[in-house]
Amino acid sequence: MSKRVVISEVQPQAYEVMFGFEKYLEKSNLDASLKELIKIRVSQINGCAFCINMHTKDARKMGETEQRIYALNAWRETSFFTELEKAVLALAEEMTFINKGVSEQTYNTIAKLMDEVTLSQTIMAIITINAWNRIAITTHQQPVLDK
């Protein structure tokens, strides 16, 4: 792959803004493991190897099981995820495939499971990882193979 711009070096102010979103999300009502599931699933959809690598490691450190991580891209076909997790994953998928919009069914399901503050924070978490994915993919950020 060709060398591409390193935005964090050329425009560190832009990264400060992105990290501002992360700081906001750290203080949110969202469970840390739920945030990692969002980050992994959205990164899978977007094909962002850098972020998949990072967030699967983070999820494991937080106690997430290998089995749930492996099954995440087929979450509808398992009983491994809670009703809340399934609602969040459905929202994450529809927001990432935004050309079809977020269905009334998906929105109404999650709105019944979360208050408006937590729902707003969930939406922001999904937006943030989508933005990180686009930065990493566009600039060819590569994961490093663990040894």
Results as ranks from 00 to 15, higher is better:
T109V: 08
E94D: 06
W75C: 01
A49G: 15
L89Q: 03
L145Y: 09
C51N: 04
A87W: 00
T122V: 09
A59T: 00
R76M: 10
M114C: 14
R76L: 15
N46W: 01
L113E: 09
D146T: 07
H55P: 10
T106S: 06
M95R: 06
D58Q: 09
A131Y: 03
L89M: 09
A49N: 05
F81V: 10
I52C: 11
T109N: 13
A111C: 07
D58R: 08
A74R: 09
C48A: 06
E64G: 08
E104K: 08
E66L: 14
L84R: 08
E93F: 10
E64D: 12
A74D: 07
D58P: 04
L37V: 04
E93W: 07
I52F: 03
D58A: 13
G47L: 09
D58C: 02
E83C: 08
V42P: 10
V144A: 02
T78E: 01
I129W: 08
Q121P: 10
N108Y: 01
T122E: 03
L113Y: 11
F80H: 14
W75V: 01
N53D: 15
L84D: 09
N108T: 12
I123C: 13
Q67S: 14
S43D: 05
V144G: 04
M95Q: 15
L84K: 14
R41M: 00
V88Q: 00
I52E: 04
M62W: 05
W132N: 04
I45Q: 09
R60N: 05
W75S: 00
E64F: 06
E116V: 07
T65M: 04
A136C: 13
L72M: 09
T78L: 06
I137A: 10
A71F: 02
H140C: 07
R76K: 15
K100I: 06
W132K: 05
L89Y: 05
I110T: 13
N133T: 09
K100D: 15
T56W: 00
A87D: 05
R134M: 11
I69S: 02
V42C: 11
A90E: 01
N99R: 14
E93T: 11
I129S: 06
A87R: 01
I40L: 08
K61P: 02
A111P: 12
G101F: 01
C51D: 07
N133V: 03
S103V: 03
W75R: 01
N133L: 06
F97M: 12
T139D: 07
M95I: 14
I127T: 12
R60Q: 11
I110F: 08
G63F: 13
T128H: 12
T82H: 03
A49M: 08
